[in-house]
């Protein structure tokens, strides 16, 4: 069965269309909807978006791969994004990256085997005043130290575990 938007997402998509002069112009919000629904933009998802917008798959792929915030691979439940731009690096971001790599057993750009954490380096999160900053999914965590970050990770790991035991 080919990939398709859920009814709910499709409604949002139609609403998005009304806000743009052409279908092509709606590509970024449509890709967001797709990422929210499917977690990442697989080739099949991009083809579906192409279909919806009367664009070629190659065009959609070109746009999707231009932006790092569109994921081309399945991501962990928690996407840990460490800012390594100037202010954060001056304030120890690299140490945070290293301790995360050690704790999670993955390198930047990878996802843990249990699919709970993905680790990325990102550019300035616009919160230099509270550097170093990490973003986990949609939430900012400011003034981080390796210790505080590891604390966050432990907490998230606990939550994920209890969710999986109660959910099964």
């Amino acid at each position: 069965m080919a990939v398709q938007f859920s009814e709910e997402t499709h409604k949002q998509f139609e609403d998005v269309l009304t806000r743009y002069p052409t279908k092509q112009a709606a590509i970024l919000p449509t890709l967001w909807l797709a990422q929210t629904e499917f977690g990442y933009l697989s080739p099949a998802v991009m083809e579906h978006v192409a279909d919806l917008l009367d664009l070629s798959p190659a065009y959609v792929h070109g746009v999707a791969t231009f932006y790092t915030m569109f994921y081309k691979e399945p991501m962990g439940k928690c996407h840990v994004q460490v800012c390594t731009n100037l202010s954060c690096t001056l304030r120890g971001a690299e140490k945070i990256v290293h301790c995360l790599e050690d704790r999670l057993g993955v390198k930047v750009g990878q996802t843990t085997g249990d699919k709970i954490f993905s680790l990325s380096e990102v550019e300035c999160l616009g919160s230099c005043g509270t550097a170093p900053v990490i973003q986990i999914n949609d939430d900012y965590h400011e003034n981080q130290t390796p210790e505080s970050t590891l604390g966050l990770i432990d907490e998230l790991a606990r939550q994920a575990e209890s969710a999986s035991t109660s959910g099964s």
Binding site: P43, M46, E47, S56, P57, A58, Y59, V60, H61, G62, T65, F66
Partner: peptide, 20 residues
Amino acid sequence: DVIGYALRGSQAKIIFDVDD
């Protein structure tokens, strides 16, 4: 409409459809 231009910077490359 087969060829596209994917990624950017030093990684930029020519693709067919969705990098098939």
